[in-house]
């Protein structure tokens, strides 16, 4: 495997995490990851070695998500019970109950955000990209990204507060 392939494999957990922010169901998230990988492989000659593969891959995923949401109405399947009630944590043995409940509430709140805010929150708050990197992925000015991020986060805090999570 070459550098591109190795890095793309290493990115899979992050790509799946971003997909889970964008779509509710696990099956849809898997489809989104799969399509992103296929498109990245098809477009690999466009990618320039030495540049960020994560930002590039997130950009591909965002485009697929937005294109298909708007053109086909995908990612709106009926959500199964397991998708709603199962919260995955990195190490279930370590996660205390309070954090699990907080995480469940946060997931619901983030999924309830408008699309542009959800994208900003997913890239910065969840994945940890810098504001500049996230703005590049979303192809918007940093100021626009920041404003979406602030609004999304304020809404998130309000929702969590209403549920008593961050009180």
């Amino acid at each position: 495997m070459d550098e591109f392939q190795s890095e793309l494999v290493a990115l899979l957990p992050r790509l799946r995490r971003f997909a889970r922010v964008l779509v509710r169901s696990d099956a849809d998230a898997q489809d989104l990851v799969q399509e992103t990988v296929e498109r990245a492989l098809a477009k690999r000659r466009v990618w320039q070695p030495g540049t960020r593969l994560d930002s590039w891959s997130f950009t591909i995923m965002k485009r697929i998500f937005i294109d298909q949401t708007r053109s086909k109405g995908r990612w709106n399947r009926v959500v199964g019970p397991a998708d709603e009630t199962t919260i995955h944590v990195a190490d279930p043995a370590q996660a205390d109950e309070a954090l699990k409940l907080d995480a469940l509430a946060a997931r619901e709140a983030i999924h309830g955000l408008p699309e542009d805010q959800r994208l900003a929150v997913g890239l910065v708050l969840v994945d940890g990209l810098s504001y500049a990197e996230a703005a590049e992925v979303l192809d918007v000015p940093v100021g626009t990204l920041t404003s979406r991020l602030v609004r999304g986060r304020q809404s998130l805090v309000e929702t969590l507060n209403a549920k008593g999570v961050t009180a």
Partner: peptide, 9 residues
């Protein structure tokens, strides 16, 4: 809570 909601795993 947000990061715990969406772990990379």
């Amino acid at each position: 809570a947000s990061r715990a909601a969406f772990p990379a795993m």
